[in-house]
Amino acid sequence: MKVTIKSWTGVATWRWVANDDNCGICRMAFDGCCPDCKLPGDDCPLVWGQCSHCFHIHCIMKWLNSQQVNHQCPMCRQDWKFKE
């Protein structure tokens, strides 16, 4: 072997793959964070429902907790189930 790689440091960026730019509940960008958080990223993640809608986790949890009877997606009114 003339040339061998001893070590390699990779650099990559990540962004959310969402069907929209903004969270349907707080209207803040998915690249940003929900109004209660300060730093976007791992501290303020997104979640997807089985209906394929996507929100900040803090936003949807707040919404679900405020609903007394059945838990529905605020966008399409289908029953809210977290996508696995």
Binding site: M1, K2, V3, T4, I5, K6, S7, W8, T9, G10, V11, A12, T13, W14, R15, W16, V17, A18, L46, V47, W48, C54, K83
Partner: peptide
């Protein structure tokens, strides 16, 4: 590994920023 740990994220490699260490044997 990354996709199994984090849902809904897309990775973009920035190869122009990566660096490595080579051993020259010739």
């Amino acid at each position: 590994f990354y996709h199994s740990h984090f849902n809904g994220r897309r990775l973009t490699w920035l190869h122009h920023l990566c660096q490595g260490e080579l051993k020259l044997g010739y």
